[in-house]
Write a protein that binds this DNA or RNA. Structure first.
Length: 530
RNA sequence: GCGGGUGUAGCUUAGUGGUAAAGCCCCAGCCUUCCAAGCUGAUUACGAGGGUUCGAUUCCCUCUACCCGCUCCA
């Protein structure tokens, strides 16, 4: 069933998400707003199930991790310490000829001769341009190649067969104002600030500038000492958090994949520095000998297993190890967990070994100690950290893409039709079970179905439906990924049959049904969805 | 940010310089003893603003959103 997910399919998925209430465009009635999305009734359940399961696996079922829910707006110094104020605002330049965009600070300085032109005149048609333009000619190239570039530029601007005007030359060294690929002049550098800016208090001035957090992680570092103390944990220990983050993406793309407002699930797992590990490891506890490499590998494995646990197949997941240029300057290692989206292999989660960079920075900027006293080693140090950081919205999209399936089925009479099924893992399916009376105009069927709905409701998301033919109701649930359907029929009510107080339990993927005593329903379902 | 494409009902599509049609979905009712049956009825749309015009969903301009490519991407 591993059919290829095409772009065509992506469109169907987007359409289904809207039609059934998973995802809507934000502010749609006003024409929408680029990079923002809303989750409808089913989408919000899906997201909640994802977050709940992550939270359960990260904190409740572990003894070494605790939670945090920090504010979105923090003291602006936070972002100076983390480096976001600097690195999240890159000056960018565009090539006037090719329109290609560069980061101004990454352009190699060049030396050579600048050819300035004051304009150009068309040899045909008679129109002209008085816009100045310049081309850099590096040593060893013919002057005509500079003129050729200039003619191209003016041709682009509507001057046919242009004759160049006002040529002058200038020697220059180490300039970054020209495109290294073609010599064309670049635009003035423009700031691209990727953090959302706002003002704390009603007065809008520089003093009051604050930012919507671009990641949840920094609050964990900032609260490290507080949380460590109240949690009464010893290293290694982790602090995790789920919350909104904001990035002014230059170009949001691929549906909800790259949004300007998104939700993260982040863990900062604090560990001993490798030097300390050597001193304090003991034979009874193998993990005590783990340095950052072992912990990093451990978290990659943990997270990979977790994705399989909620239904993403191994063959559609891939690990990508960042190296060299990709790797942030502070990171010792980063592994991305990628998923095969219909639009390509894309990152779901990054697991970074960040050394003690962040805590060191916050110690430096706040003047407050971030040190930890290790009782085994009898020494103080700033803990190191491994950070698994996942995107909730990306994961929700991955799960939707993964679940989407169209299958051709043939009925008893040999008629074929298409069945659309969302094969969500029961654990994350928005609705766990649907309850139907076989017919709605038989009060005793309806009453029994309502009774079952009431019984299950406190334990899971149940949907009751009595409209139309039973087959239609099954298909409706298939399309939103409800894994189970319960139908009350006449055999449920028959006093003289063994089937009294049994119902049919239909399984979404196989469409197979079995008769189950009503009293067995709850344990049977709970076992599947937990 | 650049280039190209697109925007008519919840979805998929017709169509026209004189305010719009259909299928599916949805809702109500009837019917229906297990996989989108049938019948009756109902709601719902020309992305926004401006211009040309007696009159614009249609032509023009601007904006916006979505898709593709480039770019960007902690």
């Amino acid at each position: 069933m591993a059919e290829t997910k095409t772009k065509d399919e992506m469109e169907k998925i987007v359409s289904l998400c809207k039609r059934r209430g998973f995802i809507f465009q934000s502010s749609e009635i006003y024409g929408g707003i680029n990079g923002f999305w809303d989750y409808g009734p089913l989408g919000v359940e899906l997201k909640r199930n994802i977050k709940d399961y992550w939270w359960r696996c990260m904190t409740r079922e572990r003894e070494d991790i605790v939670g945090l829910d920090a504010s979105i707006i923090m003291h602006p110094r936070t972002w100076e310490a983390s480096g976001h104020t600097d690195t999240f605002s890159d000056p960018m330049v565009d090539c006037l000829l090719s329109k290609k965009r560069f980061r101004a600070d990454l352009i190699e300085p060049q030396s050579g001769t600048i050819y300035h032109f004051t304009g150009a005149e068309a040899t045909e048609g008679g129109n002209q341009s008085s816009e100045p333009y310049s081309v850099l000619l590096v040593a060893g190239k013919q002057p005509d190649s500079a003129r050729k570039i200039a003619r191209k530029y003016y041709t682009q601007r509507g001057i046919s067969k242009p004759e160049l005007r006002g040529e002058t030359t200038e020697e220059i060294e180490n300039t970054t104002r020209f495109n290294p690929e073609n010599g064309s002049l670049l635009t003035e550098p423009r700031e691209f600030n990727l953090m959302f800016k706002t003002y704390v208090g009603p007065v809008e001035d520089e003093e009051n500038t604050a930012y919507l957090r671009p990641e949840t992680a920094q609050a964990i570092f900032a609260q490290f000492k507080n949380v460590l103390e109240v949690s009464r944990k010893k290293l290694p220990m982790g602090i995790c958090q789920i919350g909104k983050a904001f990035r002014n993406e230059i170009n949001p793309r691929n549906y909800t994949f790259r949004s300007r407002e998104f939700e993260q699930m982040e863990l900062e797992f604090f560990i001993k520095p490798d030097e300390t590990v050597e001193k304090t490891s003991n034979e009874n506890n193998p993990k005590s000998a783990w340095g950052w490499k072992e912990w990093h590998r451990y978290w990659v494995e943990e997270r990979l297993n977790w994705y399989e646990d909620i239904g993403l197949p191994k063959e559609d997941l891939e690990l990508y190890e960042q190296t060299g240029d990709d790797l942030a300057h502070y990171a010792q290692a980063t592994v991305d967990i990628m998923y095969r989206f219909p639009f390509g292999m894309q990152e779901l989660e990054g697991i970074a070994a960040r050394g003690n960079y962040d805590l060191t920075q916050h110690q430096k900027f706040s003047g407050k100690s971030m040190e930890y006293f290790d009782e085994d080693a009898r020494e103080k140090y700033i803990p190191h950290v491994v950070e698994p950081s996942a995107g909730v919205d990306r994961l929700a999209l991955a799960l939707i893409c993964n679940a989407y399936c169209e299958e051709t089925i043939t009925d008893d009479k040999g008629k074929t039709e298409t069945r659309t099924v969302m094969r969500f893992h029961p654990r994350i399916a928005p609705i766990k079970v649907a309850v139907f009376p076989l017919l709605k105009n038989k009060p005793e069927l309806v009453a029994k179905a309502r009774e079952i709905q009431k019984m299950l409701k406190p334990h899971m998301n149940v949907f009751y439906d009595q409209t139309g033919a039973i087959g239609r109701r099954y298909r409706r649930q298939d399309e939103i990924g409800t894994p189970f359907g319960i139908t009350v029929d006449f055999e449920t009510l028959a006093d003289d049959l063994e089937t009294k107080d049994t119902v049919t339990l239909r399984e979404r993927d196989s469409m197979k049904q079995q008769r189950v005593p009503i009293k067995d329903l709850l344990p049977k379902l709970l076992e599947k969805i937990l």
